[in-house]
């Protein structure tokens, strides 16, 4: 489904992006936390703990980003983190998972799960169609039996 060994991202690139996103997430949390009622030291309200955590996390996330950028400026060698094959597979896995969640609501567990399993087994380059289909239908049927028949659980 996906091929090629071209480099999509080095480890340094991923680390910088993750450190940046963590800072954004912490700042976003902090912004909302500071909007909650802090109360006072003797009468803390719902914003007390979130404000303390939010400010601390934002400061640390900023330090982490600076150190990550510095670290990779100094580093000589860089490891390949994502090649084209892995990156495309990851994107397709995400798209497939979202489609599975939508289908689960629309078509129910059995259909959505069988199709999702078939998709994932083909994503991992399973040869032919017969075995992937057998695995998909067999595993879906087995889980349906275990959860619905044996454990009495309701599935969508």
């Amino acid at each position: 489904m996906a091929g090629g060994t071209e480099i999509v991202a080095h480890r340094s690139g991923i680390e910088k992006a993750v450190a940046g996103l963590i800072l954004v997430a912490c700042a976003f949390y902090c912004f909302h936390a500071l909007g909650l009622n802090f109360g006072s030291l003797s009468n803390p309200r719902s914003g007390f703990m979130p404000s303390v955590i939010g400010v601390s996390a934002t400061v640390l996330a900023a330090v982490n980003l600076v150190l990550t950028l510095r670290k990779h400026r100094m580093a000589e060698a860089d490891e390949v983190a994502l090649d084209r094959y892995t990156a495309l597979n990851l994107l397709m896995a995400l798209a497939g998972t979202i489609a599975f969640l939508v289908l689960l609501d629309l078509a129910g567990y059995v259909v959505a799960s069988a199709l999702y399993l078939l998709f994932l087994t083909k994503l991992t380059r399973s040869p032919g169609w017969l075995v992937p289909m057998a695995v998909s239908i067999g595993a879906t049927g087995f889980f349906y039996f275990c959860f619905v028949m044996l454990l009495g659980v309701t599935l969508p």
Binding site: F100, L101, L104, D105, Y109, S113, Y116, L117, L120, T121, L123, T124, R125, S126, V131, P132, V135, A139, T140, F143, F147, L151, V153, T154, L155, P156
Partner: peptide, 28 residues
Amino acid sequence: PMRYLMPVVALVTFTGAYVLNYSLFDLG
């Protein structure tokens, strides 16, 4: 073969997570 095993484990994970609260939101 991991190519069959891992997709099945993924489905167990989703099924298990749904069963916890019967919530599709949890799967997101």
